[in-house]
Design a protein around this nucleic acid. Structure first.
Length: 823
RNA sequence: GGGGUUGUGGCGGAAUGGCAGACGCAGCAGACUCAAAAUCUGCCGACCAUAAAUCGUGUGGGUUCAAGUCCCACCAGCCCCACCA
């Protein structure tokens, strides 16, 4: 043989004909659900990132299969989304047409990769038989009160008259026409993920996920324990009242209630509704102008701490509930409406931002915490230790005590309590786009918002739609879609014109694969509870916060609806690293540093490429591409190939006994099996290949001895082929056949190592004196500390190094090192 | 500004707190060859003519019998961000 892409095709054909990778849920073996994050069907061929993710996870699942697991390994497409729509706007090619074509191309390429996907379980989110269940899920969430509408800002380009995604806003300007982008408020649908904030946090420790991902999620959820306190409002000289006659309470979340007596002003987010209510007629024009200005500031800029703080007086005052102090209420963009209550109490004496702001606008500054009693600290004093002063009845209290006392006092008058706040916000899922799942809601003038009845699902996405941007959701302009009858009163009504965020599509897809053809339910409970959760999920770290959190939320919501009986969708998670361009930068067409796998595949074959991806990088790190390194695998595969050819021509019938040479090689063989198995299991593919290369080197030495026994050699080579097979599946099938074995190599048992072959009689240890190596010595492997000490002390190199000093301590670490502390 | 993460030969990268640089790529030398390629063998961190010795895992401290690994501070790169009150 001579391994090439022709060998790939030969075995791909055979695998397909024999349905080698057909999944049978009833097959024996423990179930193992292995899943890669599905991909967006972009136009071009599979890129390096796809190969890196899919081919190596496939290698992992091949080993698991050979180890006797019943592996479920499906593949599909995250097929809705912005790029297809933008492409359509540019070229006039309909998103559905381009997407379906791209899917066909990618399917073909994925098959040429030689992966174990069972295509019977394929899914594409843009197909009605999938997104029907998106809509169904929406209705269920709505029923449970987990889907609701509220006003929220969108990026709006006044010139294009369209809503822009964050990525379409470049430096505050529309990417298409460079017009300044503003925030526009629209009524939109939200999923109430915040209901699950605490549980999403609580379940993290039990997950076998990278620690950094858990950290990211923890920070994203952002639990903070503090207090919610309230102030009364005075506007135009009178206390501001609610319609029902009760006084308006300005609710504020704070972690520093101990400084409450030092509040000298209050800040509201300019875009918050309460801001309008507070603003006096006198200040109306100034506040409106400021709001307009704020609407143009990008979120990124608003977050920057280096940016100078700005704000305007609303004309209203807050009345301190404990000391009656009247403090001004300002609107400032350093406060964000979406976090907490959108209102902040300002204590400039003990907060950097408040201090800076107060200085700039000449606001009062009253210190209320001192590090030691009687000490005047430089302001702002932000350390969280000290004693209260200038705080009336709370004077002299240690600050934590003071905090409790202040909250207790506020609580007694109904103006405050301890509260936990989360940074996590509800999930906005409305998109003013065409290429997505229609939201199954109907707006009736008489009946209000009415859900589409379940039996009328799916609400089909119409094909003939004008989706060039002109101020309305594309679906709003499609008369046949938008006009409908109200399911409740039968009168004329309109459908919701928006589509769902594509993260909804991907928030539960892993639960659809096992029962992807079910037209009666979202999935069968029995099937899903047997196969799910996913045992190993592999994908990019960029999804650490959003996708992975949304999926967890949906899983928990489904559990509470009785659809699934587990708490978490992904038991174990691995992030692959990112392969950069040869220049060390992220690959991009504009940089011109992209690397196309195709030319390597056609030149060397899929197996060489896959194996190099395994060998050339630390899987979870990634790194710059270096095409030269591929030679390592080209040479390695060629060596194995020659070896297989030689062995297949040898007489291997004679029984063998282990001589010294065989024992040595047998040691290496078993060591290789042990290490490679362990390394593949933990996605450390590079070292597993290194061990195989060492085995190959050892086989080479054995052959060169001229005393090689054919039958023993053949056994070793067969095991080498078996452990190499996950990385080079086509090559391994070919080799397996050449060695005279039965199809298929993937129906073989994964080799197990023999512990007794790994027992050595002597080991070499390093001898150190005060931590420096002085010599190395062979000792019996089972020697205890006393024996080693005796052996070492008898060595003349020890006496020489000792140079008359005294031994203080003798440390022996079994089989590794001896360290003698001398003085 | 905050958070996360990474710094090891010319390069990719190894190393449960225990012999730093496994395994390779590139390079150098040799064998084979008329020659080249392929293949095989050896060398391959710095200093040094060589060896020994010494120094070496971004920098500076610390813990430890022992630190690439643990702790503190700093520097640089990469990624993410919501001034989080």
């Amino acid at each position: 043989m001579s391994y090439s892409v022709d060998i790939d095709r030969k075995w791909q054909k055979k695998w397909e004909e024999t349905e080698l990778y057909k999944f049978d849920p009833n097959k024996e073996g423990k179930k193992l659900y292995c899943l890669e994050m599905f991909s967006y069907p972009s136009g071009a061929n599979l890129h390096l990132g796809h190969w890196y993710n899919y081919s190596l996870t496939d290698s992992w699942s091949r080993m698991k299969r050979m180890q006797g697991f019943n592996v479920f390994h499906p593949m599909g497409f995250d097929a809705f989304g912005l790029p297809a729509e933008n492409y359509a706007i540019k070229t006039g090619i309909h998103p559905q047409d381009s997407t379906l074509k791209n899917i066909a191309t990618m399917e073909k390429q994925l098959k040429e990769m030689g992966a174990t996907f069972d295509w019977n379980y394929e899914l594409a989110t843009c197909m009605p038989d999938y997104y029907k269940w998106n809509q169904w899920l929406f209705l269920k969430l709505y029923e449970k009160g987990l889907a609701y509408r509220k006003n929220a800002p969108v990026n709006w380009c006044p010139k294009c008259q369209t809503v822009l995604a964050n990525e379409q806003v470049v430096d505050g300007l529309c990417e298409r026409c460079d017009t300044e982008v503003v925030h526009k408020h629209m009524t939109q649908w939200f999923f109430k993920i915040t209901d699950y904030a605490q549980e999403l946090l609580d379940c993290l420790p039990q997950l076998d996920w990278p620690e950094k991902t858990k950290k990211i999620q923890t920070n994203w959820i952002g639990r903070s324990e503090g207090s919610q306190v309230a102030l009364y409002v005075e506007k135009d000289g009178k206390q501001l009242m609610n319609d029902d006659g009760t006084p308006v309470k300005l609710e504020v979340f704070t972690t520093r209630a101990d400084t409450f007596m030092g509040v000298t002003y209050v800040v509201v987010a300019p875009e918050a509704e309460i801001c309008d209510k507070l603003t006096t007629d006198e200040q109306r024009a100034v506040v409106e102008e400021y709001k307009l200005k704020t609407s143009k500031v990008t979120d990124i800029d608003r977050m920057s701490t280096t940016r100078e703080k700005t704000g305007v007086f609303t004309g209203a005052y807050a009345i301190h509930p404990l000391n009656g102090r009247k403090v001004p209420i300002w609107a400032a963009d350093y406060v964000i409406a979406a976090y907490g209550t959108g209102v902040v109490m300002a204590v400039p004496s003990h907060d950097d931002r408040d201090y800076e702001f107060a200085k700039k606008y000449g606001l009062e500054i009253i210190p209320v915490v001192q590090s030691e009693k009687g000490v005047e600290n430089e302001l702002p004093y932000c350390e969280k230790k000290g004693y209260l002063y200038n705080s009336g009845e709370f004077d002299g209290m240690e600050m934590h005590e003071g905090l409790d006392a202040i909250v207790a006092k506020l609580n007694s008058i109904g103006m405050g309590e301890k509260k936990v706040n989360y940074r996590l916000r509800d999930w906005l899922i409305s998109r003013q786009r065409y290429w997505g799942t229609p939201i199954p809601m109907i707006h009736c003038e008489k009946c209000g918002v009415v859900p589409v009845p379940e039996k009328e699902l799916p609400v089909l996405l119409p094909y003939d739609v004008e989706f060039t941007p002109d101020g309305e959701s594309p679906l709003a302009k499609c008369d046949s879609f938008i006009n409908c009858k109200c399911p409740s009163c039968g009168g004329d009504a309109k459908r919701d014109p928006d589509t769902m965020d594509t993260f909804v599509d991907s928030s539960w897809y892993e639960l659809r694969y096992p029962d992807n053809k079910n037209s009666d339910e979202i999935f069968s409970k029995d099937i899903i509870n047997k196969l799910a959760p996913v045992d190993k999920y592999v994908g990019g770290p960029e999804h650490a916060a959003m996708h992975l959190l949304y999926s967890r939320f949906i899983c928990k919501a489904m559990r509470d609806m009785g659809l699934v009986n587990f708490d978490e969708p992904f038991t174990s998670l691995v992030h692959q690293g990112i392969i950069l361009g040869p220049d060390g930068n992220r690959m991009s067409k504009s940089r011109g540093n992209t690397v196309a796998p195709d030319e390597y595949i056609s030149k060397y074959g899929s197996d060489v490429f896959r194996t190099y991806l395994a060998f050339g990088f630390a899987y979870t790190e990634g790194g710059p591409w270096n095409g030269d390194g591929l030679q390592a695998i080209v040479k390695f595969i060629r060596r194995v190939e020659r070896l297989v050819e030689e062995v297949s021509g040898m007489d291997t019938s004679a029984a063998y006994e282990l001589g010294d040479l065989e024992k040595d090689l047998n040691y290496t063989l078993n060591y290789t099996i042990k290490s490679a198995t362990n390394d593949i299991d933990r996605f450390q593919f590079n070292t597993s290949i290194a061990r195989m290369m060492e085995l190959m080197n050892a086989i080479g030495k054995y052959q060169q001895s001229g005393k090689a026994r054919g039958s023993f050699l053949k056994m070793v080579v067969e095991k080498l082929i078996l452990i190499l097979s996950p990385f080079a599946p086509h090559f391994a099938e070919e080799s397996w056949e050449m060695l005279g074995n039965e199809y298929s190599v993937f129906n073989q048992k994964w080799p197990e190592f023999d512990e007794s072959a790994l027992v050595l009689s002597t080991v070499e240890i390093a001898v150190q004196m005060n931590g420096k190596i002085i010599f190395k010595v062979n000792i019996p492997a089972d020697a205890d500390q006393a024996a080693v000490e005796e052996l070492v002390k008898a060595d003349e190199r020890f006496t020489a190094a000792l140079a008359g000093r005294n031994v203080v301590k003798f440390i022996y670490v079994k089989g590794r090192i001896a360290n003698i502390v001398v003085k």
